[in-house]
Design a protein around this nucleic acid. Structure first.
Length: 282
DNA sequence: ATCCTATCCTGTAGGC
DNA sequence: TGCCTACAGGATAGGA
């Protein structure tokens, strides 16, 4: 569910609301997520203060003093929810609750349990298997179209599946992959290795533009995603193709098509995104 | 190496 | 109303 813009929204809100707070107690549910949560490791965060919040792709890093980092991935349905005061009605599917010394609390809720919570030592963060193979973050400095083109060389996968591959580029998910390709006017089924430099430039530009605009609207709430304050994101109104099968393209009026690529719904405009690169008239 | 499928899990929407 | 099926924003292991 949450892609880079949603995760970045949560990162910013964690930065503004929990940095500087010290953990008094932690409660775990005992339910396993993508992998089991180690209660022993989590206990190391007691009495520790949250110093900063980082992110790469869809992964969040809550850096504590004492050299501990809480690694977090929201999977499909994960939410971090902040409450300024203690008396909270209990919620279903809360897997971890952090109570701070000032009485506020932070809960991790995740019905489908595809998320990840793991306490690691901060200086070994880069060695975590999930992070080691991640590609560049597209809104970090230094992200370049040439890098994408080089990574795609010789690849036959559909460019849309390529954009979803976190080893190539970290943070793009199923909604924004379709949105980016529509903005770049590239057909999602085209082989990644056959995209030409001019198109990679368009894809790279569209990627930054779509992701930054989505962040500015606190992300997209399709169904589950909520911000730290349990509010929906506002980018859904801006979506040009995702979940708009049969509806008119906002640019040209042609009916948006839905196809399945790599078992994921994919949306595109057949007229704005022709399968073959249009040859330019002389 | 690369590509593709099945799988983990719960909630929800739609058909009947 | 209830029952059933299909599908959902992700990642990964394993087979071809």
């Amino acid at each position: 569910m949450p892609e880079l813009p949603e995760v970045e929204t949560v990162r910013r809100m964690l930065e503004g609301n929990v940095v500087g707070r010290t953990v008094r107690a932690i409660r775990l549910s005992g339910q396993r997520l993508r992998s089991p949560i180690s209660p022993v490791a989590v206990r190391r965060l007691r009495r520790r203060r949250i110093d900063s919040i980082g992110r790469h792709g869809k992964y969040l890093f809550l850096h504590f003093d004492g050299g501990h980092t809480l690694l977090s991935h929201l999977g499909m349905s994960g939410r971090w929810l902040f409450s300024p005061s203690p008396p909270d009605a209990p919620l279903p599917h809360v897997h971890a609750r952090f109570e701070f010394e000032d009485g506020s609390s932070l809960r991790y809720q995740d019905p489908r349990r595809f998320g990840l919570l793991r306490v690691v030592s901060s200086d070994r963060l880069g060695h975590e298997p999930e992070l080691r193979s991640l590609g560049p973050d597209p809104i970090a400095n230094g992200f370049a179209a040439e890098d994408l083109a080089a990574r795609a060389r010789g690849r036959r996968v559909a460019v849309k599946s390529f954009l979803l591959d976190q080893r190539q580029l970290a943070g793009i998910g199923n909604i924004y992959a379709s949105e980016i390709l529509h903005r770049a006017r590239v057909h999602p089924s085209r082989a990644a290795g056959r995209i030409v430099a001019r198109e990679w430039n368009a894809i790279a530009r569209s990627t930054r533009k779509v992701l930054l605009e989505a962040i500015a609207r606190s992300g997209t709430t399709f169904s589950m995603y909520r911000t730290l304050w349990n509010e929906p994101g506002q980018y859904g109104e801006q979506l040009r193709v995702y979940d708009r099968g049969g509806q008119p393209c906002r640019d040209c009026g042609t009916a948006i098509r839905r196809v399945v690529l790599g078992q994921r719904s994919t949306f595109f405009c057949p007229s704005c995104q022709p399968r073959v690169t249009t040859k330019r008239k002389k």
